[in-house]
Design a protein around this nucleic acid. Structure first.
Length: 297
DNA sequence: GGGCCCGCAGGG
DNA sequence: CCCTGCGGGCCC
């Protein structure tokens, strides 16, 4: 389950990994990353297992997994083929939220005094590779606190001796949790619809035919033909979604291209080829017409 | 404190 | 199935 776990507030402590696992907050009992390449990452744990990590509170530089010898030393290169790392790449490409759990063994001032603590949702802002402290290639993911995720409280005995407790360290609840979590669930649902379409087309743009290759795999965007929400109110279904490259996505959203009932693509008033199709991917003519109506001139 | 080994759930 | 992993307890 991606996003918040219902009934689990930000700041929720767990005495052990087993308890966090039973609460479904972070299911693996040992591994630091939970997730799959196809669905994205559910959650990560910062527990001091990788020395290249940096914890700045609302920003975390999180090291991917793999390449260690079992006692915390990096002895070989990490790879994006590793499932956890691939999962974080997917979360980045699709803008999906990741639950963050801090453990007491992390060196960070934001670490809990003991056990583990759920610290809310973060997004994978960017990622890249570099040579780690031990001289092997590592992949790192920049995690940024999502809107509504507070910077964690610095627990009392972590404060520098002279610094008074400030209001900034007062316990923080979750602002408008219901609305935030329903937004998250809507993003997740919508991304499942888009993923189905992208899989059918193997990330090849249905308009221009290109496939973008990245170190983390191929990339495409799921583009709604009839826009979601007011005033267009398009359905979030696969028959209202196209697999497009970012350029063609912009063109579709701005009316630079429209689509005829015959699936001919019209650009600058002239036919510019035919939409690529897939047998399992039926399209809604109603949505295509609605998009055309929107950009009639 | 470090080393070891027993774990099991997740993922491919 | 097999393999791995930001545990954890116990022993030294």
């Amino acid at each position: 389950m991606i996003g918040e776990i219902p009934g689990v507030p930000v700041g929720q402590p767990y005495a052990s990994r087993v308890l966090a696992s039973e609460a479904k907050v972070h299911r693996p009992r040992i591994a630091g990353i939970c997730g799959t390449k196809s669905a994205g990452a559910e959650s990560i744990v910062l527990s001091g297992g990788y020395k290249d990590d940096e914890d700045l509170g609302d920003v975390i530089i999180y090291t991917g997994h793999g390449g260690q010898d079992g006692s915390g030393n990096q002895v070989s290169d990490q790879s994006l083929d590793d499932s956890g790392n691939a999962a974080l790449v997917t979360s980045h490409l699709q803008g999906l939220p990741v639950r963050v759990i801090r453990g007491s063994k992390s060196e960070s001032v934001y670490a809990p005094q003991s056990g583990y603590r759920y610290d809310g949702l973060y997004r994978v802002a960017s990622y890249g590779s570099k040579l780690g402290i031990d001289g092997h290639l590592i992949w790192q993911f920049r995690m940024e606190a999502a809107l509504g995720t507070p910077t964690p409280v610095i627990e009392a005995d972590q404060l520098p001796v002279d610094s008074p407790r400030s209001d900034a360290n007062a316990p923080v609840g979750n602002d408008t949790p219901d609305r935030a979590s329903s937004n998250v669930q809507r993003i997740v649902r919508s991304s499942q619809v888009k993923n189905a379409v992208k899989r059918w087309h193997s990330d090849q743009c249905q308009v221009c035919g290109i496939t973008i290759e990245t170190p983390g795999g191929t990339y495409s965007e799921g583009a709604h033909i009839q826009a979601l929400g007011r005033p267009h109110n398009g359905p979030d279904r696969t028959d209202n979604v196209l697999c497009l490259c970012p350029n063609c996505h912009v063109k579709l959203d701005t009316g630079a291209i429209v689509i005829e009932d015959s699936l001919t693509v019209i650009e600058n008033g002239v036919a510019a080829g035919s939409l690529r199709t897939h047998p399992q991917h039926t399209l809604s003519l109603e949505c295509i017409r609605s998009h055309r109506e929107r950009w009639r001139r």
